[in-house]
Design a protein around this nucleic acid. Structure first.
Lengths: 216, 216, 216, 216
DNA sequence: TATGAATGAGTTTTCATTCAT
DNA sequence: AATGAATGAAAACTCATTCAT
């Protein structure tokens, strides 16, 4: 602030005792960014998003506070980046795996959609709560916010409609079913107290089948 | 902090000449507490929990900042109180309304459970996101956090099990079904973009029936 | 920031060993404000405006940092307040003292204007540089910023015009003369190296007379 | 840091095949310094000194941040350099132009001094406020700060004294008059609201004459 | 010489909580 | 019980300066 009373910063290493090999202090932006995101993810998980400060993140990442702002303009931007990355990965996997199933195997596609969703949110369980805390975060893109929605429900809706058209199942409201199904699944994940993965997957699959394939 | 039904302290009223008409500055703790909670609820709804300060709450409630701490030891305590109250009201209504249906009318009980849940969360839609933001907030009481759980899933589980025992429906995993159903329902609420209440209730009911009454 | 990880502040006195008499920790806003302004003025004087931090000001005023923001919404607001107060005082004195001289004693009015200006800026010498650092701070109110100007030049211009109309002096451009005179005076103040007050006033007066009463 | 006229280092140019056309990355220190100063001047003008960061300056100059510190040890040093350069140019022109007037034409010398000062500060108007913001920046070198002073007042003082000795005018206090005159002039520049250059110069000249040549 | 990633002290501002009246 | 001035511990973000490459 002052013209002439600015402190003279100093070097100061982070830690590391020797640096025998290389360990360049200066890393590619990509790497730094990834390290910060990883550190943040860990902290968000253990303390919650709100309780985590930029200082903690940089400390955990082993960089100075200022370095954070070399990668993100804002604490919030990090959050968005985390969200986006998680979603992108999820949707990418969804598309890849579902894409391998022949288009007219609707039931199989549904099973695969469910399995992938379950597995992604199981592994990234934490992200789920961390990144989609606000109600509406899973919501469909509305005219008001066309960027909304997360893609998963949209894909599922399309899948359900295709199956309905083909007569694989009968569904009065594909979109509502998709939403119900998606959230039901996530709820299951939230709730899994002492339930092992196997059992969880089995139960989930059964419920999905009941819901979609119900003869009624 | 005190009980609840305490007469408005007006010792000086009978004798003292001034302040004949004005409302008593000293209100029963219960009333103050309720006023603060109401103010907080309003603010949380319009601005979000994080963005609402104690100062704003007391201003809105028309009391001094210090008075807040006469009713709540902490800002967080207010949040808990709000949560607890919402849940208690919900569960109370659930018990009351479901209780009116004969014990052996399982399908009717399920329908009523659904209708009440839907209606409560529709009206208190906002609270939902405000008060149950963290993952696990709906979860069952675990050994780790025995205070967890919200009772709704537990009641639904019991209801589903009773119906299964009676043969009204067949369910391999009552608890999982209850969880799935509950979250699916909430998801539907989150997602309702331009859907009117009627349609929402109808769709929800249909889905619940499909899930539970599925012939399989 | 976090919902539940806020630090619990503590009391902590400022200093004062005993507090035998009264010294209420809680002072009227007016007083606190004045104390902060006084402290700021002192610091601005010795270190410059830019180099002075809010922390320094509150420390000097013997209050906690937060107390600053009870009186000023912003560091800049303090600056404005300081400016405004200085100007108001100056103009008030100008009006009061000049007002005592009969309206048609133009030369006397000019002398009084000069004396007051000199004395005010001598005593508040520092403010001058502190508060009117930006070029244009003394400027006339323009159509663009009608609030601009400091009033002193305007008053002087009117005074000079009156004298010209009365034939006390002849002036081709009253406004320009006023501006020139005002800044010349301030320059003198800036420059006074080892010159005592008496001498300064005498020299200033002589110059003003030369400039305005020049027979030419 | 080096001299100034150094051939563009192009040792590799004759042999190496690449970079045949592009400008040399390595420029003489003088040039770099000048480019940085130019960029800084531009930014200071448009945003203010305080608001301009080293990063902005280097970006505008098309060099890396680190290169700044190859030319200036400090941000403040750049400011000094800018100040010094402006003053040097001004004084140089003053000496050159005034020097062309015969030594005994005191009135003419004064007129020329005024014209040059006016013109320099009119063109470099902005620098004025940017570089001489602090009070005392125009002041005479004092025993306390012997580096102070800007030379202009000193030259004017000498000029006025010479004229007084020659009887061209009578001045009780040459130094005070010089200071008054100099600041009066600058004030005029500051104040010029909608006044064109011509009119400004005319008014200034008239005031200077009144002040110095006053019959009194 | 040139680079720009990295540093970290320092700044303003916010706000839960306390406590003297 | 009620008040609201006072507190001070953070938090987010900036930026002059350094230094390994």
């Amino acid at each position: 602030m002052a013209d002439s009373s600015r402190a003279a910063p100093g070097g100061a290493r982070t830690a590391g005792p020797r640096r025998a090999t290389k360990a360049p202090r200066t890393k590619p932006a990509e790497v730094r960014r990834a390290e910060l995101m990883a550190a943040a993810e860990r902290l968000f998980l253990s303390q919650g998003v709100e309780a985590t400060t930029v200082a903690q993140i940089t400390r955990a990442a082993g960089v100075a506070k200022g370095s954070f702002y070399l990668q993100f303009t804002t604490r919030d931007e990090l959050l968005s980046a985390l969200r986006r990355r998680f979603l992108d990965d999820y949707l990418e996997e969804l598309d890849a795996v579902v894409g391998e199933v022949p288009e007219d195997h609707h039931a199989a596609r549904l099973a695969v959609w469910t399995a992938v969703t379950l597995s992604v949110f199981l592994d990234g369980a934490a992200q789920r709560g961390l990144l989609f805390a606000a109600p509406g975060d899973y919501a469909a893109p509305t005219p008001a916010s066309p960027g909304g929605g997360n893609g998963a429900v949209e894909r599922l809706t399309a899948l359900l409609e295709a199956g309905a058209r083909a007569g694989t199942w009968r569904l009065p409201a594909a979109r509502a079913t998709a939403v119900f199904l998606f959230h039901g699944l996530l709820g299951l994940l939230d709730d899994r107290a002492g339930v092992d993965r196997e059992a969880l997957e089995e139960a989930a699959m059964a419920l999905v089948e009941r819901l979609v394939l119900a003869s009624d």
